[in-house]
C-alpha cells in the first residue's frame, strides 16, 4: 500500500467493453436488413449495364397474339412491360441509377455545404453564426417543393442540376444539425484541453469536433437521402425531373398517366413504387435506428 503501488492500479475495464458490444448488437437485425437492402440496390444499380437483363429502351412487342402492350408480369418480363412494351424490371434497375445518384449527390452536397457552414458557425459563434443562422432560417421558411419547382422550371434539367437543387434544399436542415452538435461539443472540456495544448482552430475542427459531429450527421444523411429520392419522385410527377434517362419517379409517373392506366395495368406503376417505397423505408429506418443507437451511446458517456 505504498505510494508507488498506488500509481499502478491498472484495473479491468472489460465490463465496459462488453456493454459497448451489447449496444452494438442492439442496432438489431432490422437495421442490418435495411442496410442489406440499400446495399443490394446500390450494387444492382451500379451493375445494371453489365447484368444480362433486357435493354431498358427496347420495345418487346409480342407478335404471338397477346395483343397490344402493356403486358402483365410473365416469365419473360418479371415486372411486366409498359405501354411501349419496355421491360419494367430492367427499367426499374436503370431507374435506381439516377434516383440513387440524385439522392446521394443531393445529400453529399448538403453535407458539404450545410455541414461546413454549420460547423464553422457553431465553432466561431459571433457575427458569422448570426448571419449563417439567419440564412438557414430563411431557407427553411420557403416551402421546399415550391422552391424546387421554381428552380427546376428555370434550368436545364440534367442529373447534376436536379441533384444540386435538391442538395440546396438540404443545406439548412443539415447545417442546423451540424451547428447544434458543434455547439454541444465545442463547450466540452476536451476542446478547451486541445486549445490549451496549442492546437490551431483548423486542427480542433478537423480532429476534435468533426469525428463527433460526423456521426449524428451520418444518421441524418440517411434520412436526407430518403427525402431527396422522394422529392425527385415528386418532381418527376410534375414532369420536372431529369429530362433524359429513367428515374423511379418518371416510371411511376408513366404508370399513372391518364385516368385509366393505373386501373388497367397497375403493375407499371406498382413495381417501381414498391422498390422506391422499400428503399426509402430502409433509409428512414436505418437512419432512425442509428440515431437512437447514438443517443444511447451518448448517454453512456
Amino acid at each position: 500500500m505504498s505510494g508507488t503501488d498506488n500509481l499502478v492500479t491498472t484495473d479491468d475495464a472489460t465490463d465496459v467493453v462488453v456493454a459497448d458490444e451489447a449496444v452494438k448488437r442492439r442496432l438489431g437485425w432490422g437495421f442490418w436488413l435495411c442496410i442489406g437492402w440499400i446495399v443490394l440496390m446500390i450494387i444492382l444499380a451500379f451493375l445494371a449495364p453489365y447484368l444480362s437483363i433486357k435493354d431498358p429502351n427496347a420495345n418487346f412487342i409480342d407478335m404471338s397474339g397477346k395483343g397490344r402492350p402493356p403486358y402483365g408480369p410473365s416469365m419473360d418480363h418479371w415486372f411486366g412491360t409498359d405501354k411501349d412494351a419496355r421491360d419494367i424490371f430492367s427499367r426499374t434497375l436503370y431507374g435506381a441509377r439516377i434516383s440513387l445518384t440524385v439522392g446521394f449527390v443531393a445529400i453529399a452536397f448538403g453535407l458539404l455545404v450545410g455541414g461546413t457552414l454549420g460547423i464553422l458557425a457553431g465553432y466561431f459563434r459571433g457575427w458569422f453564426d448570426r448571419i449563417i443562422s439567419f440564412v438557414f432560417v430563411i431557407l427553411l421558411s420557403f416551402p421546399s417543393l415550391v422552391l424546387a419547382i421554381m428552380l427546376t422550371s428555370l434550368i436545364e434539367r440534367s442529373l447534376l442540376t436536379i441533384s444540386l437543387v435538391l442538395g440546396v434544399l438540404s443545406i439548412a436542415p443539415v447545417g442546423r444539425l451540424a451547428r447544434a452538435s458543434t455547439l454541444q461539443y465545442a463547450d466540452r472540456e476536451f476542446v478547451t484541453a486541445a486549445r490549451q495544448i496549442g492546437a490551431t482552430n483548423r486542427r480542433i475542427i478537423l480532429r476534435e469536433l468533426l469525428p463527433n459531429v460526423v456521426i449524428p450527421m451520418g444518421a441524418l444523411a440517411l434520412l436526407g437521402m430518403a427525402v431527396a429520392i422522394v422529392a425527385e419522385g415528386g418532381l418527376a410527377f410534375l414532369g420536372l425531373s431529369v429530362e433524359k434517362g429513367i428515374t423511379w419517379g418518371s416510371l411511376i409517373q408513366l404508370g399513372s398517366e391518364g385516368s385509366t392506366t393505373l386501373q388497367k395495368s397497375p403493375w407499371i406503376a406498382f413495381f417501381p413504387i414498391f422498390v422506391l417505397f422499400f428503399t426509402v423505408l430502409a433509409l428512414n429506418f436505418a437512419g432512425d435506428r442509428l440515431r437512437t443507437y447514438l443517443d444511447v451511446k451518448e448517454s453512456a458517456l
Binding site: 466540452r188 472540456e189 476534435e208
Partner: peptide, 10 residues
Amino acid sequence: DPISSLNPRR
C-alpha cells in the same frame, strides 16, 4: 470532468 475533457471518439 475527467470524461468530458477527453474526446469520446479518439
